[in-house]
Design a protein around this nucleic acid. Structure first.
Lengths: 197, 197
DNA sequence: CTAGTTCTGTCAGCGACTGACAGCCAAGGC
DNA sequence: GCCTTGGCTGTCAGTCGCTGACAGAACTAG
């Protein structure tokens, strides 16, 4: 079974190979473009067979958007940590703060990914699908904060969360287009204020 | 050149074949599922070659979401027709009314499409990408209605439009899940009210 | 050392999608 | 009447993403 640490040695090498594939692929994508880069080319650059790439990533798209996999759970955890009587919009905004920090922390990687997502239509769909899954993780908490009859509660919560994530996306896009110069938190506040206008 | 009517005879037959492909494909998708239906099967059912399907639709996804192609322009036109001093949220809500009517008019087709989109992940990404293109058509108008410094105007408009379209999507989903029983307009109002909380 | 698990490369195949080529058929000039 | 032109079509061949199956290598446990 597992050693004294939480994860076994096998899981460790797996993660190493996984990040190696992701980093090599990102370099190629930025250099040549996403659609112009073949999975076999990525595999050759890493030194493995093309088949093995799909043993670490379910799809080619996931090599890019897989980086954003844990964010939904992070946001949900941050949201659950907010006081129970905090109103929905405030709780959502505050729950995003740690995520904003982690985005600005390695801004180079974030901006590169955002740029790649911006001018690759095929990836945009995948990103939006990922965002929809984040929403699913946040809806139950927001639903609990709403004081509405049960018939309306779910629709209201889904719309609220969707609007909040749209604001987050637009703020990050704007921030990336400014090369990280504009303050991300203020952009998010501007977006939210406009929606609540 | 063209005859007395606006469109030539060639364009007419083209549209006929196009709708024929779309209708046949939708029947097969509903019966067998989207991913389980091959493009060649659709072609065979119509009586053309598989290659020709791609001469009418750029991708297999577009056979489904192509039906929603004109909606973005319709919404933009309806929005442009609203009084110039109408506030953004009110103008967006009112601009959606004709679209709501056309959705409820042939509710059977709308519900079937919504159901198909709901349980086909591959199509969801395409739908969200389409919705993003609708947003592009609405942003300039909303941007004009906002009284904000230019630095914030674009981000605010994009977020506002994105939030409104999220409300529309969620309302239609809820409406379709209720088999068209709940009043669609009220659902949309509920969603918008929740976002403006 | 052995037995069992896990990983890997290779091969074969499906389906979406594209480019190229040749044949068909309607529209228009002679 | 004929012939040319242009668009539509089917066929063929090929690329790429992705999957299942198999056999061998490597590592782990006893």
């Amino acid at each position: 079974m597992a050693a004294s640490s939480g994860v076994g040695l096998r899981e460790l090498t797996r993660r190493a190979v996984r990040t190696q594939i992701a980093e090599t692929a990102m370099e190629l994508f930025v250099a040549k473009g996403y659609e112009e880069t073949t999975v076999d080319e990525i595999a050759a650059a890493v030194g493995i067979s093309g088949r093995s790439v799909f043993r670490y990533f379910p799809t080619k798209e996931d090599i890019v958007v897989g980086l954003l996999d844990g964010i939904g759970d992070e946001l949900a955890a941050a949201l659950a940590a907010r006081p129970r009587d905090e109103p929905p919009w405030v709780a959502l905004r505050n729950a995003m703060t740690p995520h904003l920090d982690s985005l600005t922390r390695d801004s180079d990687r974030t901006i590169a990914t955002a740029m790649l997502l911006a001018d690759t239509p095929a990836l945009r769909g995948a990103l939006l699908a990922k965002r929809a899954r984040w929403a699913e993780a946040l809806v139950p908490d927001i639903s609990r904060r709403l004081k509405l009859p049960p018939a309306r509660r779910d629709l209201a919560a889904r719309s609220l969360v969707g609007a909040a994530l749209t604001c987050l996306n637009n703020a990050v896009d704007d921030w990336a287009r400014s090369n990280g110069r504009k303050p991300l938190a203020k952009l998010l506040d501007t977006a939210i204020a406009a929606v609540r206008g």
